[in-house]
Nucleic acid binder design. Structure first.
Lengths: 134, 134
DNA sequence: ACTAAACCTTACCATTATGGCAAGGTCAAA
DNA sequence: TTTGACCTTGCCATAATGGTAAGGTTTAGT
């Protein structure tokens, strides 16, 4: 006997917001869910699992676009794990790229901050460097 | 003798796009620039410096909101370097937070990817884990 | 049975920083 | 004078999420 949840409960179960669940449906990530006579969306346990899947992929930083692919692979019993791993590796590359970018900012910013006395005087190397051409 | 540049040249000089320069003016980050009779924006060297300042701050990841503060400090000869350093430190904290978040994703993703054979078989630990409740 | 609270619905707007396109005006060189 | 390379404004789009408002529904308490 399938327990059907309204969107608020589905949100609690999945860790997503009701707002986002509607949005995912709207944007084609999720199929339109069945409705009550009054128009309330209803979710069964399979759909709740799908919502959890989405949340966990979001937590790992996957874009909704990528999640669409992941969902399709998940639901395809014939998929080759090669394809999944490829997506994962691609995502790892993106993550590494962002980290590198941030670390570069971090390094430059740290140097700048270290060279600023941070006292009551107006002299500040940070502003000086930002103002420098180049 | 102040050389005046049109927006395209100002863009080349500063490394910003003409589009963004207009946008910064529109959003109040920059004062409205003088215009020719035909309505073309004109930039003098001081303004070019300001554009460079903005670009460099953007490259370091400062938000436009923060850049507004930085510009104000830059132009205030009375500023206390304490305030600048505070902004810098705050930004460094944000950067560190983002790095930590990404590194966490990286770690989990790496474990997942490592546990996926990535061959022709459909079995894939990545999808299994994403599908797990929790 | 009635009412109030707690849901649900849709639709619109905002965020952040950036890009694209289109329709039209301007300027300079050939 | 024509043409190409500029410039102008205005509108739309992105990615993912939140907010609000106006209105319908359901449920629990009186």
């Amino acid at each position: 006997m399938a327990t059907l949840l309204t969107i608020g409960d589905a949100a609690k179960e999945s860790g997503l917001s009701a707002k986002m669940i509607r949005h995912y449906e709207q944007s084609g990530l999720l199929r339109k869910s069945p409705r009550t006579d009054a128009g309330y969306r209803l979710y069964n346990s399979e759909q709740i699992n799908q919502l959890r899947f989405i949340r966990q992929a979001r937590n790992l930083g996957f874009s909704l676009h990528d999640i669409q692919s992941l969902l399709a692979l998940w639901q395809d019993p014939q998929r080759e794990s090669r394809v999944v791993k490829q997506l994962a590796q691609q995502h790892l590359d993106e993550i590494a790229g962002k980290i590198a970018e941030l670390q570069h900012m971090q390094q430059v910013m740290t140097e700048l901050a270290d060279s600023c006395r941070g006292d009551g005087s107006p002299h500040c190397h940070i502003l000086q460097q930002l103002a420098k051409p180049g």
